[in-house]
Nucleic acid binder design. Sequence first.
DNA 1: CTGGGGATGGGGCCC
DNA 2: TGGGCCCCATCCCCA
Length: 267
Amino acid sequence: MPRSFLVKKYFSNKKPNYSELESQTDQRYAVFPQCFPLDDFPTREGDSVVPNYPSVLVWTASALPLSFTAESPSIPSPPGPLDLSSQSSSSSSGEEDDCRTSDPPSPDPADRFQCAHCGKTCSSPAVLSRHQLTHCTASPQTVITTTGATSTSTRAAFHCKHCPKEYNSLGALKMHIRSHTLPCVCTTCGKAFSRPWLLRGHIRTHTGERPFSCPHCNRAFADRSNLRAHLQTHSEVKKYQCGTCSRTFSRMSLLHKHTLSSCCPSV
DNA sequence: CTGGGGATGGGGCCC
DNA sequence: TGGGCCCCATCCCCA
C-alpha cells in the first residue's frame, strides 16, 4: 500500500512537548550495547512520557490528511511490497528487499550480506552498507522554472539506485539509503533496521522494557507513539472525528475503517 | 466487526 | 553536515 505519510503534512503548529511528561526510569536505555553495531546510544534525560494534552484536537473526516481520503495514487510506490510488517511477504521485487524482511534472517551470512545490485558478498551489514552507497549517484537535473523556461544543472538531484526516489541533498539521500541497506542489526534475532532508534525499539520487544507509562492506568508501552494512541482511549472526545456522524475515534485507522463502513460510506 | 495494542517505517526538526 | 529524536502513519494481530 502507499505509504502516504511519506508526504509531509503540516497539521499543527508545534509538536507536543513530551519533555513535560512525567519522568520515568532511566533503565529503559539499559539495552544490550552489543545490539548497536554502528552507534552507541547516549542516554537522554527527560524524554519520558505521559503527554499532557491541554486540549483535544479533533480531526474531522474533512480535515483528514489528503493522503487519508484516498489511496494516494499520486504517490509513486517503490517497486516491491512496502508492507514490511507482513510476515507472509517474500519481497516480490527481488532487489532492494534482500535485507528488508521481517522474518528472521537467513542463517547463511553469504545470502544476508549480498549486494542486490552487483552480487558482491560482504562480510557484515556495515560493509554491505558502505558498498551499496557506491551504487548511488548524483546527477544534474533539468528544472522547469515558473516562467516555463527550463534550466539544467541548477540543482543536483541525488537519485537512489534502489528505488525511483530522488533527493535534493546528499544527506537526505544517505538517510534514505539506510532504509535499503538496513545497517542496524539486532544481534538477538538478526533483524535489521534503518535507524538506530528503530533497532532500540525493536530490542524492547526482546527485553520487555516498557518505559512509557500511562498516567491514567497502569499500562506501559515500549513505544511512545503507542502510548499516545493509548491515551486517546482515556479521552472522552477522541482525536479523529467522522465528519458525517461526528463519532470520534482514537486512531485514524479506526476512523478510516468507519468511513469505509456502511455507516458513512460516502465520506 | 470493532477497538486497541504491538511493531515498525520514514521525513522533518533540532543540536 | 550528520546524528539522534520526534512525530506521524500504518499494518497486523488479538480480545
